[in-house]
Design a protein around this nucleic acid. Structure first.
Lengths: 219, 219
DNA sequence: ACCTGAACACCGTTCAAGT
DNA sequence: ACCTGAACACCGTTCAAGT
């Protein structure tokens, strides 16, 4: 215990960066805070990491890899897809910056594993080859869309440091003030906002896409 | 014709900002380029616009409003939804920064109109009230996910200034080099990448979600 | 009321110099 | 090979001063 400070490594840098991102959001991660926390100079970090983008990508890959690793490979394909989607949702919920990163960057390694799992399970579900890529794309892009919105919500919440319920109440109030002629649907949606469960709605969307895949291809 | 330079206004600032964004991407828009192009000082811009975020949001709203305004209100609801989705896709294709903005920011006014149109048409399609919000969310989030990825692709393409086909060939080559044991699906996808149509795949995803909505709710 | 532009605080990144 | 930290180029934003 209490051994000497670890030598600097990419893993250590990514680990500390993840901590900063989790605690303070994307704006908190600067090379200045990073050098302070690691008690080194800029050059030491640039020796292990090409630039800030690569650092963010590596941290994102790390989180997504954790989600993939935690999956039950033998599950029923439909359940497996739901578990993968929910795993990503929950990871993004606890690390909102991952959502922003995934929505904004193809981020090769992380998303490749996601596509692979999705493709594998859709194949097991009996989706024929040509449609497989469209179906996988639909599912993954839906997840990425939600990821981006979740990250945006977290950003607003962190910035205004209001809690979730007062934030939802504010948005609901704004929506209810809209022109009833022009925004009837949005105004009706506002009344549902208070008892609204992001996670449940996310899963409902996944199920809708799965239902579409089932409807188009046998079952 | 050739009348005096327009007085500075928010509309004029947004117009010039849009031009800069279209020509050089998100990085090209700085307050320095903006003051030069408008031949004013920083304060003049800040007098009309609170900060850079508001400027980007206003420019995004402008583009999305254009898409909404171009829609045929009387179309068959299913066709109307496809037209709205395609309209957003095409707008993001020509203004990739709009995709990044929509994926990263709730951007109230712009997305409110989108949600309203989607809700209205799903209602016309016979989707019952409680599921309406889930279905609208699924559709919009899918569009936003694709928007973010499109913006990311455009960023890579602009930065490496390779053309689209060599870029796709590079990605395909990378995917084909992956471990066949671990990434069988991605490797098969690589062979499809060359003759791959982003727009057609996007529309296939929309149709899949619409099929899911139809399967879950009567027709 | 509206505009000007020097100045400020703060980024990411580089690089000569050290060990 | 790996690390240090002053320095550079470049942001967004402010604000005293002008008209």
């Amino acid at each position: 215990m209490a051994r000497r400070t670890d030598a600097l490594s990419k893993e250590r840098i990514v680990e500390v960066a993840t901590g900063i991102l989790d605690a303070g959001g994307e704006d908190a991660l600067t090379f200045r805070t990073l050098t302070t926390r690691l008690s080194t100079g800029y050059g030491a970090i640039y020796h292990h990491v090409a630039n800030k983008g690569e650092l963010l990508a590596a941290a994102t890959d790390e989180v997504v890899s954790g989600v993939i690793a935690g999956l039950d490979g033998g599950a029923d394909p439909r359940e497996g897809l739901r578990a993968l989607a929910l795993g990503l949702f929950d990871a993004i919920d606890t690390h909102p910056w991952v959502g922003a990163q995934l929505a904004a960057q193809p981020s090769r390694p992380a998303l490749l594993d996601v596509y692979e799992r999705v493709g594998e399970r859709l194949h097991a579900l009996g989706v024929p080859e040509p449609s497989l890529f469209d179906a996988a794309g639909a599912l993954v892009n839906y997840v990425l869309g939600v990821a981006g919105q979740n990250a945006a919500n977290a950003r607003v919440l962190a910035h205004d440091d209001a809690d979730r319920s007062t934030y939802l109440a504010t948005v609901a109030a704004q929506w209810e003030d809209l022109d009833p002629e022009r925004y009837p649907f949005v105004r009706r949606a506002a009344t549902r906002l208070a008892d609204h469960d992001d996670r449940a709605q996310f899963l409902a969307g996944v199920d809708l896409i799965l239902a579409g895949i089932g409807a188009v291809h046998g079952r």
